[in-house]
């Protein structure tokens, strides 16, 4: 197999505010191959978005700082590039869709303007050609009457339509990697179904790789091949989606899967949940970050931080008790309506 298209290697990102250092990302490593869909899931504050924005270097610095690690795209370390070189990649070879379609478009320019701006920033084409391309892009993402809609302002579009415009802008330069940061969280279910369908269809047609960041496992089952589960700025488990669903290994993943409401469950039986809340990342974490909430925790978990190790082919987990020699027995679901803190 050839080199991966994108490789994030031991990435550490920290935010410095005053004398407090918050370690938002603590050693994230993953690879993205061509035409592959990777999902990243985790609770708020687990470092999903910081990882993604670090790839494109969109995080404000200061306060943010990449403390360690490397990001290779086609063999080049993106962190070593000059800002001019980076600009050639950003929006061109790697592009991004953001969560909130209503705040990520500029309200004082027409959508056509914003599309043409992106195209002309990266390609030497005339205004007329750029406009033609913009119209065909709007058509591609399923906006009716694109030749009229191109002269409209973002406020004249609905949420779902705005997200389509965002996708059109992201696709303007035929990117090889598309980073989608919670692309459907702000949308209704019926619109979410439309957008996910569209993304799948476009991927088949254009052959790009997608990094899908979400907290909704339903979206992952729908679209991804591989899944990274993040907790407290670390990847705690990574596997193919099917493996992870059939044989999850990390206790946090178990909790996450158990908290999903499944068909046939009703309010007579309480929902499983993970007691407590994630650790504060502005303190040094000793041992496993999940230890306080883990029902299987033992002495070693407080002392040593487990590393992400491949236990089965293609399935890695960061847990002291999940190795190829030794495995944990999964307990019954935990129920809680209380607050541990």
């Amino acid at each position: 197999m050839s080199d991966p298209l994108l490789k994030v290697d031991n990435l550490h990102v920290e935010f410095k505010t005053g004398s407090i250092i918050t370690r938002a990302v603590n050693g994230v490593t993953f690879e993205l191959n061509e035409q592959e869909n990777i999902g990243i899931v985790g609770e708020s504050g687990s470092g999903k978005s910081v990882t993604a924005t670090s790839i494109l270097q969109l995080i404000p610095s200061p306060p943010a700082k990449v403390a360690n690690g490397a990001i290779y795209f086609k063999g080049k370390n993106l962190l070593k590039l000059s800002s001019k070189e980076m600009r050639k990649i950003r929006g061109n070879e790697i592009s991004m869709i953001f969560q909130d379609p209503s705040t990520s478009l500029n309200p004082v320019f027409t959508v056509g303007n914003q599309l043409i701006e992106t195209i002309r920033a990266h390609k030497k084409v005339s205004k007329k050609q750029a406009k033609q391309k913009a119209i065909s892009l709007l058509d591609l993402v399923g906006i009716p009457a694109p030749d009229k809609r191109i002269d409209m302002y973002p406020h004249e579009f609905s949420g779902g339509m705005r997200q389509r415009v965002m996708i059109a802008i992201a696709l303007a330069c035929d990117p090889e990697v598309l980073i989608a940061d919670e692309p459907t969280t702000a949308l209704d279910v019926t619109v979410q179904a439309q957008i996910l369908n569209l993304m799948k269809e476009l991927q088949e047609r254009l052959g790009m790789s997608i990094i899908m960041i979400t907290h909704d496992l339903g979206v992952v089952w729908e679209t991804c091949d591989k899944l990274l589960v993040m907790y407290a700025g670390r990847v705690v488990e990574s596997a193919s989606v099917k493996d992870l669903y059939q044989q999850p290994l990390h206790p946090y993943t178990w909790g996450l899967l158990d908290s999903q409401i499944s068909e046939g469950q009703n309010s007579a039986e309480p929902l499983a949940s993970i007691p407590g809340s994630p650790p504060d990342l502005s303190y040094e974490i000793k041992g496993c970050p999940f230890v306080e909430r883990c029902p299987y925790a033992q002495d070693i978990c407080y002392q040593e931080t487990p590393q992400l190790n491949e236990t089965i082919q293609g399935h890695a987990v960061a847990c002291h008790f999940q190795t190829s020699e030794h495995q944990l027995e999964r307990k019954e679901r935990e129920y809680s309506d209380g607050d541990a803190t």
């Binding site: 009716p144 609905s158 779902g160 339509m161 279910v189 019926t190 619109v191 979410q192 179904a193 439309q194 369908n197 909704d216 339903g218 979206v219 992952v220 089952w221 729908e222 989606v241 099917k242 669903y245 999903q260 499944s262 068909e263």
Partner: peptide, 25 residues
């Protein structure tokens, strides 16, 4: 019917028949 068919899948193995609505509200 369309609303229920838009509920995301419960597992990667589930095959779902989707009714995708045209247009917006």
């Amino acid at each position: 019917k369309a609303l229920f068919s838009a509920i995301p899948k419960e597992s990667p193995f589930e095959e779902k028949e989707r009714i995708i609505l045209k247009g917006t509200v």
